[in-house]
Design a protein around this nucleic acid. Structure first.
Lengths: 347, 347
DNA sequence: CTGAAAGCGCTTACAG
DNA sequence: CTGAAAGCGCTTACAG
């Protein structure tokens, strides 16, 4: 005896209407040629009975689960809510569910997470890989979201261009000495962002990069960054490669009695939840996550629909680089007290 | 013709070994009585072939999908990563996958999200309800995580007790006038926290509560909170009902030239990612999310395993209130400059 | 336009 | 200890 489901199935609808299950199935899916009035009757009755199609039955028959996997390097990453929300939204719109998997920690865990999703029968997955990881083909189509510097990507934000936006903004405020602050020298994303900032600087501007990972290796996590000294050295702009670092910089500077944005400017990346909330709020650069997720999911879904068999392919999309958008919240700088247009965000 | 899966199935293993599928199934699951050496051979061969059981086949047969749903009021909530991570971990350990659904916005979307999960065949779900929402039984077991004030809960952090911890801490630092800062007067969670703070105050202490939602209705989102004035009125402690509010308070005070923790203390709730990172880092109170998730998931799984049919029940657990833990990061206050033990967190 | 039938891959009660 | 068989609910090619 197999465990029965609580709801009605096709067969019950068919019996009670005196038609075949095939006809009910066709009527409900709109695929076979069924007469208009019969379709009507069947749909009505199905709705009345509260019919919910069995995903298991359908999946077994079609070989498709209707579920996508989402593999993240670390769910604790503060960017995660935006990613998950965007992917869930895009997937939902395309009729797919989203199964999450966290590859907390090493590459082995990532592989394991991918396997777990495959075992659960996902039709494809979106992977945001750990730094420096190549996704060797899983047993299903995979869309990779990373930097454009990473080969085999499906789609990515143009972090380099985002960096250029920041540089342009700081140049416009009259800054000459910029301290770039990163916390992961191995990260493609951070390197792209930093490179973009450097490449976007105008003649006469100078930058230096502070990698906190090194600093913390020596002085322990959460150690002071010594930014007040940097101000003493003439730096007036602090371009953090993430909003979390920007927040750390902002509060350290404030604590040292340095006024933002009167004395120095602080910028971040990603427009995370706290950016518009802190005082002064953070100038940052935002990915169009909905667009990125939309591209990734639709490329994935196309591949799934096209390939008749579940195979391991790396999905590629036409549009690879999605521009990042500058959000100016600190509109004045030390060298340029004139107000500029600013955008105010909701909490 | 049904779409075929790429990998081998039970039948292929059976054929190539000259045994029946039933035996292979039994050997692999360890359920039926199969001789030791045959089990050995079958397992070996299955591993060799890279056999991955079909969830669809199993689900159809057993009526169980092995998947749990996770419904969140808003994925963008900064607490979400912790929740999702904890639920995913607990579910994973219990052999379940996690399907996410965001009920962004109204109650209707929540109901819809729940239905979508049911349609996807989840065996049960964990719901973190929108404020003031009663989850009427879905078509599967449901575990609700909310405040203890909400009836029908499965498990919840003891926000009230968390508030008492904060009050005790502030009392210990010698504070007399506390400004409680909330942003949602309707939230059970925030009301519990605020109530806990008030109830934990020592004789001679005084508190006032600032509801930002009201303030913002009048002055627009992101308006200044006027905390400097409150300092002028003699408040020395600012107890925010969330870490995001604490961050907002902290930076607004710093910007006004008020030193923390020398002049005033700022506390939050939840120990979110930025709490240990800002300068000065935030004293806060932390939920044991892993424990909460573990309780919710295991109660859910028990119910699923017990009930022979998928039915809509609200799952209740034995231990309802999980204590919150105080994390002291600002160890001195204006009235008590003596250092106390402090805990330093990693980034 | 409608229906009978096969079969997706699995598990389980039952017979041997 | 092992196997033959039924059946979970669905979809689809095919026959009528």
């Amino acid at each position: 005896m197999a465990t029965s489901r609580p709801g009605p199935n096709l067969s019950r609808i068919a019996t009670s209407l005196g038609v075949s299950v095939a006809t009910v199935s066709n009527a409900l899916s709109g695929k076979g040629r069924v007469s208009g009035q019969l379709v009507e009757r069947i749909r009505e009755h199905a709705a009345e009975l509260g019919y919910v199609p069995s995903q298991a039955g359908r999946a077994l028959r079609t070989g498709r689960s209707g579920v996508l996997g989402l593999v993240l390097p670390d769910i604790a990453n503060p960017l995660f809510p935006k990613i998950a929300q965007a992917i869930e939204f895009a997937a939902s719109a395309a009729g797919y569910g989203v199964l999450i998997a966290d590859s907390r920690g090493d590459v082995a865990a990532q592989t394991e997470a991918i396997n777990r999703l495959v075992e659960r029968g996902v039709d494809g997955m979106v992977v945001i890989p750990r730094r420096a990881t190549r996704i060797s083909s899983a047993a299903c189509p995979v869309a990779v979201i990373d930097t454009p510097s990473t080969p085999g990507n499906t789609v990515a934000a143009d972090h380099w261009q985002g960096g250029r936006e920041i540089a342009g903004h700081l140049a416009g405020l009259g800054h000459r000495r910029i301290l770039i602050i990163g916390n992961n020298q191995e990260s493609n994303v951070q390197n792209d962002r930093a490179g973009g900032i450097r490449s976007g600087m105008r003649p006469g501007m100078h930058s230096e990069t502070l990698w906190i990972d090194r600093l913390e290796q020596e002085n322990g996590n959460g150690c002071p960054l010594g930014l007040a000294e940097k101000v003493g050295q003439g730096f007036t702009a602090f371009a953090a490669l993430s909003d979390l670092l920007a927040l750390r910089a902002l509060t350290e500077l404030q604590q040292a009695g340095i006024n933002i944005p009167t004395d120095v400017s602080v910028t971040g990346f990603d427009d995370l939840i706290w950016s518009p909330v802190v005082t002064p709020s953070l100038t940052t650069v935002r990915m169009d996550m909905d667009r990125i997720a939309g591209i990734a999911v639709s490329a994935l879904v196309d591949t799934i629909r096209t390939s008749s068999i579940r195979e391991g392919v790396l999905v590629t999309a036409e549009i690879e680089r999605v521009a990042m958008q500058l959000i100016v919240r600190q509109s004045s700088g030390p060298a340029n007290p004139a107000p500029r247009t600013s955008e105010k965000e909701n909490m």
